[in-house]
Amino acid sequence: MGVDKNPQPPPPPPRWAVELNNPPPSRPKNTSNIPDPPGFSAQRAIGGKQKTSQLPARKPPTQEETDILKLKKSWEIALAPGKQLPMQLIMSYMSGNSLQIFSLMMVAMLFKGPLQAIAATNSTFTKLETEGNKGKMILVKATFVGMQCMLLALGVWKIGQMGLLPTTQSDWVAFEGERICLEKAYFAT
């Protein structure tokens, strides 16, 4: 049953702990005109939580305001593909019209992206859609789809440039039948 013969006093708390719990020492008078560094408030530092709760509470936005906000946001999303358009145009122009793996991949992406986006139009806007802005959202969605279609059109133009669209007579000549003469002549073998 050992009892400590000479129990040592507990070590003093570290300085930072002391400073945290005690308010900073009052400033000397001659320094009282020096402003605190931005973001430091002597009262707050002392007062802690009690002080903040005393600040006036922010007024929650009204339903209308959120609707407007959401609509703004959705317009931003809807017009985003349009901003891609010039870049894609330059890329398609630069990649050339020969049938190569890169130009083909680019064309594939040009088709894949817009088609996927169009398919996912509703899910893109679900978070931003509310009861109030439902009517206006239709226009937004239409714009979004329109923008994607412009990208698609770019893709079509690109494959047209590559000569992959059956737009010339030569593409259909194989489907044209030979004119058959009803009479047939036979010659000596």
Binding site: E176, G177, E178, I180, L182
Partner: peptide, 9 residues
């Protein structure tokens, strides 16, 4: 352009 049959006569 018709590909119909025709008679020489």
């Amino acid at each position: 352009s018709s590909s119909a049959n025709y008679s020489s006569f």
